[in-house]
């Protein structure tokens, strides 16, 4: 635990993590399966254009995947999000998401539960990139909201 924490404090390692997730994004293939809900994020800017899919059943996020054209920050942050939130309940996911949004907004946050996504802790310094770092996360937030509406 403290071991990974110290690794995640090393900027070199964090940079490598972003590079890796950009060059080899995880869960980077959409599914042809109508149990998946999909969110297309393309209207925010003319650059990033990504699709996020999630299979949420009984309040558990069973699978997440994504695809699209995007910059390093969008791609890597979405890739990490899929790793982090897969298998979580929607309540757990919301807590993690809130911490992530607080981090990129330069507010107080709990870094431990963000795991690799801590790599984006300095994004707030490049204000124009906050949108990139949150595009996939916002898609997931909307998908969770939709799934909860569906279950009411």
């Amino acid at each position: 635990m403290s071991n990974t924490n110290s690794l995640l404090a090393d900027p070199e390692i964090l940079r490598e993590l972003i590079m890796d997730h950009y060059q080899y994004p995880h869960n980077h293939k959409l599914k042809e399966d109508d149990r998946y809900m999909m969110k297309h994020m393309a209207s925010d800017s003319c650059i990033d254009d990504i699709k996020v899919q999630a299979k949420i059943e009984n309040g558990v996020i069973e699978d997440i995947c994504f695809d699209g054209v995007a910059c390093t920050i969008s791609t890597a942050s979405t890739s990490m999000m899929t790793d982090l939130l897969k298998g979580k309940t929607t309540a757990e996911a919301r807590k993690i998401m809130q911490n992530y949004f607080d981090m990129v907004d330069a507010k107080e946050y709990d870094g431990d539960i963000l795991e690799e996504a801590i790599a984006f802790k300095n994004v707030y310094r490049q204000a124009n990139r906050i949108k990139c770092a949150t595009i996939g996360w916002r898609a997931m937030e909307e998908l969770i909201e939709e799934s909860e509406k569906g279950n009411e």
Binding site: E12, M19, Y22, I73, F120
Partner: peptide, 10 residues
């Protein structure tokens, strides 16, 4: 380079 472009965040 890709490294330098990501490097601005650290």
């Amino acid at each position: 380079t890709l490294e330098n472009a990501i490097g601005i965040f650290f």
